[in-house]
Structures are given as C-alpha cells and as structure tokens.
C-alpha cells in the first residue's frame, strides 16, 4: 500500500539568503483534509451551479473528476526530488 508524502524538505540558497525548511506533511494532511471537507461542503452549491452552466461547454467532466485526479497526483509525490544548482543559487525540493 502506498502512502502520501510525510515530509517536505525545501532548501533555497543564494548569495543573500540561505533558507531551509522541513515541513512535516503528516501533521498537515489531517488539517488539510478537514479544511478541504469544510470548503467542499460550503462550495458544493456553487460547484453544482458551475457544472450546470458549463455542461454545454464540455467542462463538466473535468470539474467533477479533476479533484480526485489532483489528489491522486499529490498522493504519488512521495520520492520526488527536484534539485537545481546554479552558480550562486541552489534550490532543492524533496518529498519523503
């Protein structure tokens, strides 16, 4: 069984700044879930109206299915590393 990333490691370094951050995502996920659920309940009527008005344009399916698809992408971020090393800059993003 796969798990969502539990830690985000961020490092930004240039000539004037040196910034590092370890973000414990495992603490943030429950808060994000609760917030998303409340936002979803509040926005549900507006979302339904959007779906009705965009039905003719063909945007309905992406609006409905977009949320779980984006969640799936976030879930699979674990193991992703982006490391860019310039002459004076260094940006590193790691999902653990």
């Amino acid at each position: 069984m796969s798990w969502p990333p539990y830690l985000l490691k961020l490092r930004i370094k240039n000539s004037s700044h040196n910034f590092g951050l370890w973000l414990p995502l495992f603490l943030i996920w429950p808060i994000v879930l609760v917030c998303l659920l409340s936002v979803f309940i509040i926005l549900l009527p507006f979302a339904l109206l959007t779906v009705i008005f965009t039905w003719q344009l063909g945007w309905c399916y992406p609006v409905i299915m977009g949320i779980p698809a984006i969640c799936r992408v976030l879930w699979n971020l674990k193991g992703m590393i982006v490391d860019v090393n310039g002459r004076d800059e260094h940006v590193q993003v790691e999902f653990h």
Binding site: S2, V73, N76, L77, K78, G79, M80, I81, V82, D83, V84, N85, G86
Partner: peptide
C-alpha cells in the same frame, strides 16, 4: 544550471 530531477513512475 546543474539539474537533477527524480520523478516517481507512479506520479
């Protein structure tokens, strides 16, 4: 720039 990117296949 020197770039290293590791992308999970599941992603």
């Amino acid at each position: 720039e020197r770039v290293n990117v590791r992308i999970p296949v599941s992603l």
